[in-house]
């Protein structure tokens, strides 16, 4: 008797649960699955507009994909470029935001203000603002004018020269210098990551550090043995978020190309094929990274 009752309660729960998520299910099927399937179909077709508003599909199978990989002069280089930049950026953003979160976790005057400033780009450089910003050549020329004026005394430039002309001008220095050059972009796109790391840092109980201190741990050991493992699950979240954010930004080169093809050439099939290739590549990268990092993540409870 009791068993039957519990079963019915579970059933009721399931029903209520489904009721609550119906909006999502409908939306998911209607606005994500249907368009995705349609775009997949398009990518295998030659799509032509007919007079009466409709579209005509002609099955061409892999032709469009062949065109993407072998015919289009821009796509593959841009994709590779994009991936290379991503490989440069994502670690940079992660390290930067982690570092900033540690700094912001300390007590100092004006902390709230600094936090607000770092979060500002999340609000301001979103959507079309990014593309407007990157097109604004006046800003660029202003900055370069300032740079010119100060180039004689520029520390980074001198440092760069010293480091790169040395005998052991390693790839690593080049990488770091490249990152330093892009610090503006990095700071601009790490708002959310900083906050996520910060919240993670604040959940680590101080008693852990206290115990470590009594046992004679140095700050360095504290960092590697306590802070990093405790925050490792958030690293996974941030890696995924950063990659997704980077790939869907509207000033992204690949996206630009796809948009161009869509609005100028009106080649739906090619567009769909390009999007799918891009999407597939991102998914593969995300999958691999998530797999690797999740094996290393440490869960406290």
């Amino acid at each position: 008797m009791a068993k039957a009752k519990r079963k019915s309660m579970a059933k009721g729960n399931a029903k209520a649960g489904y009721l609550f998520i119906t909006p999502f299910i409908i939306g998911f099927l209607l606005f994500l699955v249907v368009p995705l399937v349609q775009s997949l179909r398009m990518s295998f077709c030659e799509v032509a507009a007919t007079n009466g508003q409709g579209l005509k599909y002609k099955w061409v199978f892999l032709d469009k994909y062949k065109e993407v990989f072998f015919k289009d002069p821009d796509y593959v280089p841009r994709l590779l470029d994009n991936l290379k930049n991503m490989a440069l950026f994502v670690p940079g953003i992660l390290v930067f935001s982690f570092f900033m979160a540690i700094l912001l976790n300390q007590e100092f005057a004006g902390r709230a203000f600094v936090r607000a400033v770092f979060f500002l780009p999340v609000i301001l450089s979103s959507g079309i603002m990014v593309s407007i910003e990157s097109n604004n050549s006046l800003m660029g020329s202003m900055q370069s004018a300032i740079k010119e004026d100060t180039s004689l005394t520029s520390i980074t430039k001198t440092l760069e020269n010293i480091l790169l002309t040395g005998e052991k001008a390693s790839k690593f220095f080049e990488y770091v210098i490249n990152l330093v050059d892009k610090v503006y972009d990095i700071a601009n796109s790490s708002g959310i990551q900083i906050i996520i790391f910060l919240s993670g840092l604040q959940t680590i109980s101080p008693s852990m550090y206290e115990a470590a201190k009594i046992e004679g741990c140095t700050a360095w050991e504290n960092f590697w043995k306590i802070t990093l493992p405790m925050i490792s699950s958030l690293i996974l979240v941030n890696v995924i978020y950063t990659i997704v954010d980077y790939c869907t930004k509207s000033n992204n080169q690949v996206m630009d190309l796809i948009n161009d093809k869509l609005f100028k050439n009106v080649d739906y099939g090619l567009c769909a094929a390009m999007s799918w290739v891009y999407f597939g590549v991102i998914m593969v990268i995300l999958g691999i990274l998530a797999f690797i990092i999740s094996r290393w993540v440490y869960y406290y409870d």
């Binding site: 994500l32 368009p35 995705l36 775009s39 398009m42 869907t248 996206m255 796809i258 991102i282």
Partner: peptide, 24 residues
């Protein structure tokens, strides 16, 4: 499964859906 779909929704770049959405 459904929650994975939510994550999928976050990951899919909206640009991918542009054309089909327009047509739809």
């Amino acid at each position: 499964f459904w929650f994975a779909c939510v994550i999928l929704m976050i990951i899919v770049p909206p640009q991918t859906l542009l054309t089909p959405m327009y047509l739809m």
